[in-house]
């Protein structure tokens, strides 16, 4: 008896909790409304099933509770009923799968005009790289990483010279422009996650992963690491600042390019220079490559 009441009350409590709890999705700040739509469709269908099945359960428990003299009905199976239930379940499943797959198709199809920006992860901080004036990210790999070259830029790649390197955990993005975020890890798995953008992807050492999105609301949002990466996992934070094109360009202009960084380091060390700087091609090559 109590259990029937408990089940019915739990259903009611769940609905109330859903309606009254202060915890729900953060306000969306990207183009991924389609993901939210898929989520809401899934939620609606699942909520109907949850409420319906459990209220049926509660009613059955109450109605067919044991009383002296009762005897259960004998019915081994009912193929017609089972087929009908299967059919309607399949409809419900298809109803939530379709928006899910449509959103996923969008998620994996990067628009041709998306700007490329790279986020790199290491225990336990973020770094960001912009392609510079040539619009092309230079090649980079872990084999080139050393104290002077934390991004692992290929010193022989002319495309890398004008890449803008940001080591401060702060990513700036222009408002309303689609951006393909290319992800690279130097040590272990990480995951680039901004709750307001809904988007998320792992950083995997050894390969380059990506996702894309369009920021639609200016403001400052938190970047979290969403793939366990060691004892500092919970402290691997960053910020993404979405601002209008002018402010973005101003900010970008204030950052150092890889070429400038090399030159500065060379100056600091005097005539000896670093091996890295000596191996680099003359500045003209970079300018020429940038013009292509």
């Amino acid at each position: 008896m109590h259990i029937a009441l408990a089940i019915a009350l739990l259903v009611l409590a769940s609905i109330l909790f859903h309606a009254l709890s202060p915890w729900w999705q953060t306000p969306i700040a990207s183009n991924w409304g389609s993901i939210d739509t898929a989520l809401h469709v899934t939620l609606l269908i699942c909520a109907l099933a949850f409420v319906g099945l459990n209220l049926f359960l509660a009613y059955t428990l109450w109605k067919y509770r044991h009383r002296p003299g009762n005897r259960a009905h004998y019915e081994p199976e009912n193929a017609r009923l089972e087929k009908r239930l299967t059919f309607w379940t399949a409809i419900g499943i298809a109803g939530m799968l379709a928006p899910g797959l449509i959103a996923w198709h969008e998620y994996v199809t990067v628009p041709a005009d998306a700007a490329v920006i790279e986020a790199t992860g290491q225990q336990w901080q973020w770094g960001f790289r912009y392609p510079g004036r040539d619009g092309v990210l230079g090649t980079a790999a872990v084999e080139h990483v050393d104290a002077d070259n934390p991004f692992g830029m290929n010193p022989r790649d002319p495309y890398g010279r004008d890449d803008v390197l940001v080591e401060t955990n702060e990513l700036h993005l222009p408002l309303g422009k689609p951006v393909k975020v290319v992800l690279r890890s130097k040590d272990v798995l990480h995951d680039f996650y901004v709750p307001h953008f809904r988007a998320k992807m792992d950083l995997v050492p050894g390969i380059v992963t990506y996702f894309w999105m369009t920021p639609t609301k200016s403001g400052s949002y938190e970047i979290l690491c969403a793939e366990l990466c060691g004892v500092g996992h919970h402290q691997m934070r960053g910020n993404v600042i979405v601002e209008d094109q002018r402010a973005y360009e101003t900010w970008l202009g204030e950052q150092m390019t890889f070429g400038q960084m090399l030159a500065e380091r060379e100056q600091q060390r005097g005539a000896g220079g670093t091996q890295l700087a000596r191996a680099a091609p003359p500045a003209g090559a970079a300018a020429k490559a940038g013009g292509r």
Binding site: I3, I7, L10, Q25, W32, S34, I35, A38, L39, T42, L43, I45, C46, A49, F50, L53, N54, L57, I93, M96, L97, G100, L101, A103, W104, Y107, D191, Y193, P195, R198, A199, K200, A226, E227
Partner: peptide, 27 residues
């Protein structure tokens, strides 16, 4: 009680299985 919790847990599994819905919810 198993029926109740399993209905709940099974349905939330659909969120995570439904690929794009999993993106904001995973981890």
């Amino acid at each position: 009680a198993f029926l109740f919790t399993f209905i709940h847990g099974g349905l939330t599994g659909l969120f995570l299985g439904n690929v794009s819905v999993d993106v904001p919810l995973s981890d």
